[in-house]
Nucleic acid binder design. Structure first.
Length: 452
DNA sequence: ACTCAAGGCCAA
DNA sequence: TTGGCCTTGAGT
């Protein structure tokens, strides 16, 4: 069995696909993209795309459209602030620890891929692969079955936070965990932290004070949480299947994934700037109100950032053919499926990036119109801060900036209506007793029935 | 002493 | 303007 992409992925420049020569400005890139990025930022260059700003960038075409090349550099995470204002040579910058961390992660990832390969080669039962993404069927004997799979399936926050401690097993537990944290936060640093670096070429950027919050955000982007979550999900699925023996079905497996994803979302919120300062009662109100939106956002963002056309990419690495889902699902799922696909396509067209998804996540979380909020004004002010940060980011990162912010708001409202559909679908399943009890998903659905 | 991500140089 | 190779220097 071949895994060409898995082997080569580590060596390819994410901008042009050329050979990676090391970390440059925050990302493993080739020497030429490093040089290109440096020249662009140092010389304050501005480019214009003569096409539709969607030029393909590879080794042979990278010289054709510097505009799209630079956009891609930014999109893959190259950092303007790593280009030094004072042009000092040598030494190390403040990303040093981050690079080290990333290297460790890549090692971990490689090891995990090896382990998976061994596991798959030894199992070889009903395992479906697609060629270009690590697509591994984890549910050993249960092939992805769109009949039973709600298209509200599950993904993990890309920026998802500490999922490491997953002892949250009972509904009451997570509220207690919420209670245990409090810390002060720096409002001013938040906007920067959340959007990462502003896409200006201002020379003042790299002379500013240390950007620790930004570094933290960068850590949040990292994979170990995802790997941890995957491991957790595998073990939960195994447990679940062991309990059910031959009766296991895909929907119950999906509920297991949903539950774990909800735990990770709660954990992310719990440790997030500002949210951790809220009273626990308000935290619970907000989460009860927006959990399905956050869940849908994670699925959608995963498709936009990593998925491929026509497939549904799950946190486990599984991919389902959307056309197959569409042809086998009931009407509720078909509608969800179709609207979700359309939204993914729009977000892909807009090339929404990690930073923007991070802002959207906060916009969803800090919803001031949730009823009975004790700290309504605080929530409202945070939402305004996030909106400001997102606006600023879109203004500086995109040439079609005005429309971009409006588009994002529009798509957010579409996502909201999609999440209502998804929540209703799960609620229906909940009422008919198909959602396993004693988990977070169940609690969220139960809260819905108490409040409505 | 070694590492490695910065900036610099210069032929193409 | 590009991109491969060189030099630099703080951190380990």
């Amino acid at each position: 069995m071949n895994f060409p992409c898995e082997v080569d992925l580590e060596e390819q420049c994410p901008v042009c696909g050329d050979k990676v020569s090391g970390y440059h400005y925050g990302v493993l890139t080739c020497e030429s993209c490093k040089g290109f990025f440096k020249r662009t930022v140092q010389n304050n260059k501005t480019y214009i795309c003569v096409e539709n700003q969607q030029c393909k960038i590879d080794t042979s075409k990278r010289k054709r459209c510097p505009f799209c090349r630079f956009q891609k550099c930014l999109n893959v995470g190259m950092r303007l602030e790593a280009v030094r204002a004072d042009r000092m040579r040598g030494g190390r910058n403040k990303f040093g620890p981050m690079y080290k961390h990333n290297r460790a992660l890549k090692q971990q990832k490689k090891a995990l891929i090896q382990a998976r390969r061994l596991r798959i080669e030894s199992n070889q039962k009903e395992v479906t692969f697609t060629s270009n993404i690590h697509s591994i069927a984890i549910l050993h004997n249960t092939k992805l079955n769109p009949n039973q799979l709600p298209s509200l399936s599950l993904s993990q926050p890309c920026n998802s936070p500490a999922v490491i401690q997953h002892q949250i097993t009972s509904p009451s537990n997570w509220a207690m965990r919420l209670e245990n944290c409090s810390n002060s936060a720096d409002l001013a640093s938040f906007a920067e932290a959340i959007v990462g670096l502003h896409h200006t070429s201002s020379r003042s950027i790299s002379t500013q004070s240390p950007r620790i919050p930004q570094l933290e955000i960068e850590f949040l982007h990292c994979d170990p949480h995802e790997l941890q979550l995957q491991k957790k999900i595998f073990s939960c699925l195994q447990q679940e299947q062991a309990c059910r023996h031959r009766e296991a079905n895909t929907f119950s497996s999906v509920c297991v994934m949903a539950d774990q994803l909800l735990c990770s979302i709660v954990e992310w919120a719990r440790t997030s700037i500002f949210f951790k300062e809220l009273k626990v009662s308000d935290q619970m109100r907000l989460l009860h109100s927006c959990w399905s939106e956050l869940l849908v956002l994670e699925i959608i963002s995963r498709q936009v950032l990593y998925g491929i056309d026509g497939s549904l990419l799950l946190i486990t690495g599984q991919q389902g053919e959307l056309s197959y889902v569409a042809s086998h699902a009931g009407s509720a799922l078909v509608s969800l499926n179709q609207r979700g696909t359309e939204l993914v396509e729009k977000l892909r067209m807009l090339k929404v990036d990690h930073q923007e998804f991070a802002c959207i996540r906060f916009l969803i979380l800090f919803a001031p119109d949730v009823k009975e909020l004790e700290e309504h004004h605080f929530v409202e002010s945070v939402q305004q801060q996030v909106e400001g940060a997102l606006l600023k980011y879109t203004l500086t990162s995109s040439s079609q900036s005005c429309n971009r912010f409006t588009c994002l708001q529009l798509y957010l409202s579409e996502l909201r209506s999609l999440s209502i559909l998804a929540e209703d679908y799960l609620y229906y399943k909940h009422l008919s007793g198909e959602v396993p009890c004693n988990n977070l998903l169940n609690e969220m659905l139960h809260a819905k029935c108490c409040w409505t």
